[in-house]
């Protein structure tokens, strides 16, 4: 029935014809008539019964349920405006910030989160008519202290995490760091030593850069183990 016009993993640009006929398709594609076209610059993926185009770049688009790392850029009387690296600033209402009820008369929002604070937060609603609403009053959410923040393309976050978290857990273990990955491409890293943090950053950058290659997990393991040996010596 269907005819695929391109090789798997081809780089496509907006408007390229990808396939003809009847095929299941995902992101980065529109269908007009019998033809399927790419809408973004990206990697064409043909999985037999399913095609899609993975965009390699672009702003993070919020989705309800996503955990993201945000930066407070404005503090209101009863709310905060947060840069989550997306086209939209997120809004955190005081009542969604802490487990305790917020009293605007007594409580000072700045004492909870101030401008420049980095927070781990969860998107609870976003429907394109209103800015994304986020919360920090669940376990594990809230202000991140110390450590470092790096940013990568949001599209590469899944690769950094790996299957069931294998990749990121390995990096954490071998670099003795704590790592939190935000779906918006921001990653928080904290180690006891700065060198450990640097090693973790180095590996994440390598994962992003070599995301397309096979056997990446092994190479990252080798790289980090080598480092460890050097240190012992």
């Amino acid at each position: 029935m269907s005819k695929i016009a391109l090789e798997n993993h081809a780089i496509v640009i907006p408007g390229d014809i990808l396939a003809e006929g009847n095929v299941r398709y995902g992101e980065g594609i529109i269908k007009r008539g019998d033809y399927y076209y790419s809408t973004v610059v990206g990697l064409f993926q043909d999985k037999g019964d399913f095609i899609q185009v993975k965009s390699l770049k672009g702003k993070y688009v919020p989705r309800s349920g996503d955990l993201v790392i945000g930066k407070i850029i404005e503090v209101g009387l009863t709310n905060w405006i947060i840069d989550i690296g997306s086209p939209y600033f997120a809004v955190l209402l005081a009542n969604n910030a802490t487990e305790k009820k917020f009293d605007p008369v007594k409580d000072d929002a700045r004492r909870i989160f101030n401008v420049g604070d980095i927070i781990l937060t969860k998107i609870v609603s976003f429907d394109r008519t209103r800015d994304p609403q986020v919360i920090t009053n669940e376990r594990g959410l809230g202000k991140l202290r110390g450590g470092r923040i790096i940013e990568i393309e949001a599209a590469h976050i899944p690769r950094v995490i790996g299957k069931k978290g294998t990749m990121i857990n390995m990096v954490k273990r071998l670099t003795r760091t704590q790592i939190i990955t935000g779906q918006n491409g921001r990653i928080w890293i904290q180690g006891k030593k700065k060198e450990d943090e640097l090693k973790a950053i180095e590996s994440i950058k390598k994962i992003e850069l070599e995301a397309h290659t096979q056997g990446l997990t092994d190479r990252i393991r080798d790289m980090l183990s080598e480092n460890n040996n050097n240190e012992i010596r």
């Binding site: 850029i73 470092r148 923040i149 700065k194």
Partner: peptide, 18 residues
């Protein structure tokens, strides 16, 4: 541009180590 406290602290703590 709002620089995050984390980055600010990091830059400063590095400077302490030259």
């Amino acid at each position: 541009f709002v620089i995050s406290e984390i980055e600010k602290d990091y830059i400063k703590s590095l400077l302490e180590q030259k």
